[in-house]
Nucleic acid binder design. Structure first.
Lengths: 191, 191
DNA sequence: GTAGAAGTTCACCGATCGGTATACCTACGA
DNA sequence: TCGTAGGTATACCGATCGGTGAACTTCTAC
């Protein structure tokens, strides 16, 4: 998984069009013909570059994942205080979901692709597990009492904030506040 | 919207098959032919009963919503302590999502149906707003200081717990614990 | 005894799905 | 100068999509 995909100009245009369409309209609902037309490219070129729709879907998610991770990493690295760093992904979330009202691309992808054998399924699931792991590392580094439990709770908060994005309510600031409170107080009562 | 749908036997079989298929495979990915075959019914009958696929999708979500709400209502009503009642929906969630690993049907539907004008979109969105409203009512009844803010946070927790369902991690118990801690810390001691 | 609702059978519709075949054009490096 | 990689244009494939038309059966209620 180390390939830096030296995409051709046409390949990049296809990937960009695919991302916009897949995210905003859903993966299954968007046909390859439409993607080709939107990127000003022949269907033949699309298949020369990506081989199949499934592979294009995987590239779409992998590329989005890559960009998102680098945003999160940057937010974490910008923190001096290790306690502050734990909730940095929530700050990144603020930046990431600007005017998006379509929720999380990876959760949405899991909704459309139930098959665990599909490469796109793995990419989407791995993204969540990566974040969970990051939370745990950061929590441990901050010296809290139960880093794994805290990480689980932060992940739930994070995914919850994303999940309600399509609704006409503003939630991000409150969620970030709650996350910070959780981190500061250590992990609340184990039963 | 008060119709109690006196469905015919065939209609009920169609609705049952549609629910199973839509939930487990995704709405767009499932064709009407498959639903008809699974319910042992002709496509003609399906269209006589529901008129269109869109309407069948709406019925699928409405029916699921109805069942879910009655489960939540029952869980709430079973609580004597109004403080305990606030987190009753999390207990209902425990019952609701038995072996489900496909997440929330309504979030998934929103992922596949971006068009706000689609009836199914409204049903899915309304389900979340109903829960938000319920949380606020329960929080207010319990006498807490900021019921609206607490309700928002509980909704985020609830949706987060559902959203991570497809992942191989167990989260429900911890989320319910956190929800209870939130309620307890936000409300003044009873009597 | 008969009307009407519910359901079946089966053929059919145009559109779109993911994917392929063939042939041609063009810029560029050895 | 020539091969080749990247791209275009166009036509095509079988399968499936959501949806319809028309005639026939079966059961039930008035």
């Amino acid at each position: 998984m180390q390939e830096a995909q030296p995409m051709s100009p046409a390949g990049r245009r296809i990937a960009a069009a695919a991302e916009e369409l897949f995210y905003n309209r859903g993966i299954t609902a968007v046909g390859v013909d439409l993607i080709a037309e939107r990127s000003g490219v022949t269907k033949r070129t699309l298949y020369n570059q990506f081989g199949s729709k499934d592979r294009l879907v995987a590239v779409y998610l992998a590329e989005r994942d890559r960009r998102w991770r680098s945003l999160v990493r940057a937010a974490v690295d910008a923190c001096d205080d290790p306690l502050e760093a734990v909730t940095a992904p929530f700050e990144a979330l603020w930046t990431w979901s600007g005017a998006n009202t379509r929720g999380c691309a990876f959760i949405n992808a899991l909704a459309e692709i139930p098959d665990p054998a599909h490469p796109a399924h793995r990419i989407a699931a791995d993204q969540k597990l990566w974040l969970l792991n990051l939370f745990e590392e950061l929590a441990a580094a901050a010296g809290g009492p139960a880093p794994a439990a805290l990480a689980t709770r932060l992940l739930v908060l994070h995914e919850g904030a994303l999940a309600v994005q399509p609704l006409p309510i503003d939630v991000l600031a409150q969620t970030a506040d709650l996350a910070r409170a959780l981190v500061r107080s250590g992990a609340p009562p184990r039963r």
